[in-house]
Computed example of a mutant assay.
Amino acid sequence: MAYDFDLFVIGAGSGGVRAARFAASYGARVAVAESRYLGGTCVNVGCVPKKLLVYGAHYAEDIEQAQGFGWTVDNKTFDWRTLIANKNREIERLNGIYKNLLVDSGVTLLQAHARLVDAHTVEVAGTRYSAEHILVATGGWPHVPDFPGNEHVITSNEAFYLD
């Protein structure tokens, strides 16, 4: 049977991107569908933003200690909105790198929600694609269980975008 793709990957996190690029490097016809953001949890609401915020938090301590090394630091100020804007800009840059990695590898990138129809069919934005192999690499999504007070709980999906 003739398929549209040799491999169709649902999810463009690190695992899905790596699988797609590897398969394409061996000559496979590959498509990737991603409805949220390229790079997955780590890049967007996990490792990367956490590290940027932790790095930013350490500067107050570093500035304080710098005085012991002969530095005079006057007018110490901090602007949360600047930190968040710069974090967002870095994530957008990384999303662009993931996009380029896929496209430059010859992968067809579909930035929309995918739905598995059957063992060889995926539907994306109303269009059906056939594939010999389908890899579901959607990762996880945080879940807040139902308990008294859960309306006060946020996950990393919200925490990195607080005003």
Rank of each mutant, 00 (worst) to 15 (best):
G96L: 05
W71V: 01
R21M: 05
I91P: 02
L7Y: 07
L53W: 06
V30A: 09
G15L: 07
A23Y: 03
K76N: 13
D104N: 11
G40R: 00
K50E: 00
A23T: 06
G15R: 14
L110W: 04
A28W: 05
D4P: 01
V17P: 05
H58E: 15
F22Q: 12
F22W: 10
K50V: 02
L83V: 04
W80D: 11
Y55W: 14
D6E: 07
K99C: 09
G40E: 00
A60C: 06
V9T: 04
Q67N: 08
H58F: 12
V9G: 05
D74E: 14
N100C: 05
Y59H: 14
D6N: 01
A31V: 10
G11C: 08
A119V: 07
L101R: 13
F22L: 09
D4L: 07
T108I: 08
G70Y: 03
R29P: 06
K87C: 07
G40A: 00
K50C: 03
H58Q: 15
A23G: 04
E92R: 10
A60Y: 03
N86V: 01
G13C: 01
I63N: 10
G39A: 00
R81I: 08
G56F: 03
R18P: 01
I63E: 12
C47N: 02
G13M: 04
N75R: 12
I63M: 13
L83G: 01
H58C: 09
L83E: 07
V73I: 11
F22I: 15
F78C: 07
I91E: 00
A23M: 11
T82V: 15
T108L: 11
I63Q: 14
H113T: 15
E92I: 06
R18Q: 13
R93N: 09
S35A: 14
K50H: 00
G13F: 01
V48N: 12
A114T: 01
I97L: 05
R29S: 12
S105G: 02
F22T: 15
N86R: 12
Y59T: 08
D74R: 15
A57R: 15
T108A: 10
T77H: 13
A119G: 08
W80A: 01
V17F: 02
F5K: 05
Y98F: 14
K50D: 02
A114L: 04
A23I: 00
